[in-house]
Design a protein around this nucleic acid. Structure first.
Length: 293
DNA sequence: GCGTCCAGGTCTACC
DNA sequence: GGTAGACCTGGACGC
């Protein structure tokens, strides 16, 4: 007998647009079923209890979470789902800024703009470092290795994303040899030790009062986090005033707005300047239109 | 089969 | 503050 939880769907929310908003749905312990439009994630639980896998899908106008076993805390699972799907984000400002735009009005129609994220900023931070200077296939492999080799198993064998403590418990050689993380290996050891010891609290970035440029500086203190990674993380904590330009985003801009010719980042920045604090989200929606539509 | 390039960049040393 | 060179990995590509 499955254990199911239900969440009402808020206005301006699209389950499909959200779970397919960027590549995160392909990174373990997320799994996406594009045939039936279901998203599975392995949730950590409180009190040292085993993680539990949950599959999220739309069911009669609500979101249903079908769990592999009875949860210790229903509230913890629901809070995590609300967080990863950005159910409580207010994107009215984004929609107002693109509503009359010839090329971008679809964002309103499709209720796009909610970027899927992990339950913890630590997990998003590690995953973001795994996206730097490598192919997407290698990113997926590194993250899958982290989950497979360091994640705690559910009763049925799926695994959660590893805790900072678990990641701090292995050496740089382990990251090199088992995770295939290459030069990122010592970065992961340093990061995990800092978070496990309480010296660094990435979760506090969600509610930080720091202005965005200052918060970005804080993020860049983490080894392996540069401009792109910090701006990607800023988006995941709800700040969209950085473009998070990477090679993929640049190439898409060249194709869509510059006759496939390379141009300086400043030109890209000028193009989206008018969208103000929403510009990071606007460029992302603009470049991923084909994914959603 | 082998060498080179480069992908959802960043760090360090040097100027 | 700006820039060159090094850095792991693994898939794609040319030869």
């Amino acid at each position: 007998m499955p254990h199911s939880l239900f969440i009402d769907i808020p206005d301006n929310f699209s389950f499909r647009s959200t779970i397919y908003s960027h590549g995160w749905c392909e990174l373990a312990p997320f799994e996406i079923d594009e045939t039936n439009w279901r998203l599975t994630y392995v949730f950590r639980q409180r009190n040292g209890s085993r993680p539990v896998a949950g599959t999220i899908f739309e069911d009669a106008g609500r979101l249903r979470i079908e769990l592999g076993s009875k949860p210790v805390s229903r509230k913890k699972i629901i809070d995590d789902v609300r967080h990863i799907l950005r159910l409580d984000d207010d994107l009215n400002g984004l929609y107002e800024s693109v509503a009359d735009h010839e090329r971008l009005s679809w964002v309103v129609e499709k209720s796009a703009g909610r970027l899927l994220r992990s339950p913890t900023v630590f997990e998003d931070l590690v995953k973001t470092i795994c996206t730097t200077n490598c192919s997407w296939s290698l990113t997926k492999k590194m993250v899958a290795n982290l989950v497979e080799k360091l994640g705690e198993p559910t009763a049925r064998g799926k695994r959660a994303f590893p805790t900072p403590e678990a990641m701090a418990g292995v050496s740089a050689d382990f990251y090199r040899d088992e995770i295939r993380a290459g030069y990122r290996s010592p970065y992961f050891v340093e990061l995990a030790e800092a978070v496990a010891s309480g010296k660094l609290d990435p979760q506090s970035w969600l509610t930080s009062d720091l202005p965005t440029p200052e918060l970005k500086k804080e993020m860049k203190k983490v080894k392996g986090v540069g401009d792109y990674a910090a701006e990607n993380l800023l988006k995941l904590v709800g700040r969209y005033d950085g473009l998070a330009l990477d090679s993929w985003l640049r190439s898409q801009f060249y194709k869509n707005h510059n006759n496939a010719k390379v141009c300086a980042d400043k030109k890209i920045e000028r193009h989206y300047k008018k969208f103000g604090k929403w510009r990071g989200l606007v460029i992302w929606c603009d470049m991923t239109e084909k994914w959603i539509n």
